[in-house]
Write a protein that binds this DNA or RNA. Structure first.
Ligand SMILES: [Mn+2]
Ligand SMILES: [Mn+2]
Ligand SMILES: [Zn+2]
Ligand SMILES: [Zn+2]
Lengths: 145, 145
DNA sequence: TATCTAAATAGAAATGTTTTTTATTTAAAA
DNA sequence: TTTTAAATAAAAAACATTTCTATTTAGATA
């Protein structure tokens, strides 16, 4: 039965509203990251009325709960992506076609060690993201490196 | 003579305007990251007229040239910081007092390997940032971890 | 199944950072 | 000095994101 978003939302103690489920379905079907407004456009095909604040609020909640991820983009806008990999990992983001791919290297141990032993600080979170051109975009030869 | 910002700007092929130099001096004197508007407030003490677009433009140019760094903050606002360390490195950012400290671990080799060998992609840039509470803020005991 | 309540929502309005525009000024090269 | 491209101030605009509030709804409970 594929992705059981209803039960995922239950587990997260969020009401399984049709719009919330639709947002997850849309993201899970999409191989690229999407902006809140693009997500709303897709929702318009399924719902007569849909408010942009609802989209923003749900995306924030779902990202906070960890079921979707927020892409930190150089253009400083918000983008979201559904990642099936439930392990801690990071992402390679293609700045041309918006593809997102897993990076299984993190270095968290070394970072944590540096922060806690050297700086005597407490690490709350870390972010690592890699930007570039993916395999397919390189093939298309539209980029001069 | 300390920091020779005039010549640094010359090297970067940027005009050494008084405001540009002042922005660099302000940042170099500051142990924390500053917002564009905070930088403008400090500039107001030195210049009668100073436009916010000028501050934004200069910060962007200086960050692009690599002489100052842009802090990617969870609050999604822009912050800038003058870092004296000219080696490639990353930062620990205290979300309470805004202190910035160097992290000398990067993992770029492993990341590059993963991106180029596994994903067959081309890496343009990467960002790594660590958020937390610094040593001093931990001492003040105002945080419950 | 009907009732209830906190959570979720639409729609409109506000927010506020960042960017654009244009006329003017200035750094620094010639 | 003269010249010119770069930098600037000021005002306006852009525009993504958030706030507000009345209404609706999911899902618990009787
Ligand atoms: Mn992933
Ligand atoms: Mn540094
Ligand atoms: Zn990690
Ligand atoms: Zn690095």
């Amino acid at each position: 039965m594929g992705n059981d978003f209803y039960n995922i939302l239950k587990t997260l103690k969020l009401k399984a509203t049709p719009k919330r489920i639709a947002i997850m379905e849309i993201l899970a079907d999409e191989p690229t990251y999407l902006s809140p407004d693009e997500i709303r456009s897709r929702l318009k095909g399924r719902f007569k009325n849909i408010g942009l604040p609802t989209v923003y609020r749900n995306l924030e909640e779902l990202a906070d709960s960890g079921i979707i991820i927020k892409i930190i983009h150089p253009d400083r806008k918000l983008y979201y992506f559904y990642c099936h990999n439930r392990e801690h990992h990071h992402h390679f983001v293609c700045v041309q076609c918006r593809k997102v791919e897993d990076i299984n290297f993190c270095g968290m141990e070394e970072i944590k060690n540096e922060v806690e032993k050297n700086l005597k600080a407490h690490m709350v979170s870390h972010m690592l993201q890699v930007y570039g051109f993916c395999k397919d975009c390189l093939k298309k030869q539209t980029i001069s490196l």
